[in-house]
Simulated assay, not measured.
Amino acid sequence: MTYAAAEDMQARFNHQDLVLLTEREPSTPGEVDMAVLTQALEDATAEINAYLSGRYTLPLNIVPTALVRICCDIARYFLSGDNAPEHIHQRYMDAVKFLKAVNAGTVSLGIDSQGDKATTNDTALMESAGSVFARNKAKGFI
């Protein structure tokens, strides 16, 4: 199971860019090579899992939206190879920085260590001593 699907890549990036990034010798001209794209997503998932394995039980039951984006950015970087433009390289470096922060525990994915949605006790609790200006407490002023 990968954290992102080919549809996620196609939703985030230009179709023509994906065609150029996945083009190989046996590819059909003008079409995204799904085998190449799927392999890049699997490689990106493996890299993500290397960072998450120290903090979470894998595979995750719930895939946070942040990991879908991170997986797409890493896969795009892998597809670019040695010719990655600066903005693709920067997005990859940002993704790795995020994953290192998750590994260190400074950033949370919003799931518990077993990969389920995290429960929280950070709820607001309001208490009141009652109404201050009630008729029965006014003693003739109202």
Rank of each mutant, 00 (worst) to 15 (best):
R24W: 00
E25V: 03
D43C: 04
S27P: 11
V32P: 06
G30Q: 04
P26R: 05
L37Y: 10
L18V: 07
A40D: 15
L20I: 06
A35T: 10
V32F: 02
L18G: 13
L21H: 10
M34V: 14
A40V: 08
Q39T: 15
V19G: 03
L41K: 06
A44S: 10
D43E: 15
A35R: 11
P29K: 12
Q39C: 10
A40G: 10
F13L: 13
L21I: 01
H15P: 04
T28H: 03
D17Y: 08
A11Y: 03
M34E: 13
D17W: 13
M34C: 03
A44D: 11
L21F: 05
R24F: 04
N14K: 12
S27W: 03
V19D: 01
G30R: 05
T45F: 00
E31T: 02
T22V: 09
L20W: 12
T22M: 08
E42G: 12
A40Y: 14
L41M: 02
E31N: 07
D33K: 02
S27E: 12
V19I: 05
V19L: 07
G30T: 04
P26D: 12
Q16M: 12
L20V: 10
Q39R: 13
H15T: 12
R12V: 03
V32E: 04
L18M: 09
E25I: 00
E25C: 02
A44E: 04
F13A: 14
S27L: 00
Q39S: 15
A46D: 14
E23H: 06
G30S: 11
E23R: 15
